[in-house]
Simulated assay, not measured.
Amino acid sequence: MRILQALFFPPEQPGGVSSMIPYLLDEFNTRGCEMEIFSLPKRLRGKGHENVQFTTFDAYKFVGNAIVDKYMQTLKDYIWWSRMRLKQPYDLIHAHHPIAVLALREIYPDTPIVMTIHSAFEKELLLNGRITENGPEHQFLTSLYGELEAKTNQLLTVSNAFKGYLADYVQDSEKIGVIPNGFDEKRFRPMRHENAVPQLITMCRLVPAKGLDTLIYACAELKKRGSKFVLHIIGDGPNREELEKLAIEQGIYDDTIFYGYMLHPEDFMPFFDIFVLPSRAESFGSVYAEAALCLLALVGTNVGGVPEQIEHERNGLLVQPDDPKALCLALEKLILDPVLREKLAHAAWDKARKTYALSRVTRQLQSVYDTYKIQ
């Protein structure tokens, strides 16, 4: 069976689908499946000119808004690049981005397409203050879900919470399958260590949706309460300068290290003690599972798919988003109680190994793929 895994950009970023698909490729290729990865080069811009026919809504009435215009041009570029590079037939296409679905359906009108919806771009834009709810960009992006339903043979997503979110935008949400992301356990090497000062780590794109301003306020309160710590921030993004200024204003800049982008953070993460990410929205939050596989204690927010990974006080701690005091108290609890910290870390590690093993996602996807196998 020849399968194309269609991503958006190349799988270079840590976390989520980018870290999963190359390992998935190895798993399936060893099973005798011909699988390859396709994506759009990051520097390819403005090459495409072919319009797409939308069947469920009038996408072109939204043209003239900067975000929509960029989205549509990227779609045209994806079509242009696909026509340039893809010459062979496939038995199945598994797409991981709406643009990949819309582009490849133009080129392969009769090939079955399965799509995994990994996140909600519109939610990130809303939380980052770039669009307004029910504005033209929001309407365009949410209307795409119905178009994806019409142009795919099967929709999948990564958490039950996100499936519930999609229900408002599709005709039949019951047909959406849920397959959480999987992780190759061999990538993660938990390491016993003793840090004299507890080491906190977070890893994400530096955008408002990830709530790192809340984390900085919480850590400032921690310092006022006498707790010692070092905060390590891995990732880059448009909010970096603002977050660095906030750390200075809150008096914790000397206790904080901004690393920027890191290609293989899983090699680095096992030396820390507590992973914390106070997101304002997460469809799944792959980085929590990755941190768990590094044997870190977890602190997250009660949003989206995070509670499906973190069970409060069983394998981590959950707080409400935008609540620096609650986050401070959760971190303080783990800083002051190393026994609890180790207990929660081991429980999170055990759940991640059992629930998010790459072998599990391989079996689940194999079952989906077999539905379209040519007899």
Rank of each mutant, 00 (worst) to 15 (best):
L263Q: 14
H312E: 05
P41K: 10
C219K: 05
Y369R: 09
A220G: 15
G260M: 12
F275N: 04
E36Y: 06
D58W: 07
F272T: 07
Y165N: 06
K354Y: 06
M20V: 11
Y108V: 07
A348W: 06
M115Y: 09
L263K: 15
G48H: 08
Q154C: 02
L277S: 12
G237Y: 11
K228S: 13
Q199M: 11
L4S: 06
R360C: 03
H346T: 10
G300E: 06
S227N: 13
F54L: 10
E133Y: 13
I234T: 02
V230N: 01
T214V: 10
L126W: 09
Y108Q: 07
A95L: 11
Y90H: 09
F54R: 06
I310T: 02
W80Y: 15
K325H: 12
S367I: 14
A330C: 05
K70R: 13
T74C: 01
G129F: 11
K333A: 08
F9R: 07
L231Q: 03
V230L: 10
F121A: 07
V178P: 08
I67G: 00
R43H: 15
I131D: 05
A330S: 11
I107R: 08
Y261H: 13
N29C: 12
L243S: 06
Y23H: 14
S286K: 01
P11A: 01
T301E: 05
Q13P: 00
L4E: 05
L318Q: 07
P198F: 12
Q139P: 09
T371A: 11
M191S: 13
E27A: 06
L7I: 10
V303E: 06
V197D: 02
D69G: 08
G211Y: 02
E242I: 12
D69I: 14
P180A: 01
K76A: 09
S227I: 00
L92P: 03
Q250R: 14
K70Y: 01
T74G: 08
T362I: 04
V68E: 05
P136V: 11
T256Y: 08
L25T: 14
G211I: 04
N153H: 14
V319N: 03
N29L: 01
R85A: 13
E106H: 06
T301G: 03
Q139F: 05
E27H: 07
A218D: 04
H346A: 10
V299Y: 02
A120N: 02
N29D: 01
I107T: 08
S18R: 00
V303I: 12
N29Y: 00
R2F: 07
A196Q: 13
E34V: 08
R2N: 15
R360D: 04
K76L: 01
Q5C: 08
P324F: 00
P321T: 14
F268C: 04
I99Q: 14
P324C: 01
S173A: 15
D322H: 10
T30R: 15
K175A: 15
Q73H: 02
A209N: 09
K151N: 15
L155F: 05
T157H: 03
R45N: 10
A348C: 05
V63M: 13
D213Y: 07
F9A: 09
E342M: 13
E147W: 10
F57Y: 12
R130N: 03
T301D: 03
Q139A: 15
F268H: 12
H49L: 10
Y90C: 12
P41I: 08
F188D: 09
T355N: 05
P278F: 01
A66S: 14
L277I: 07
R225L: 07
A120P: 04
M84V: 13
E36N: 13
K70G: 00
R363K: 15
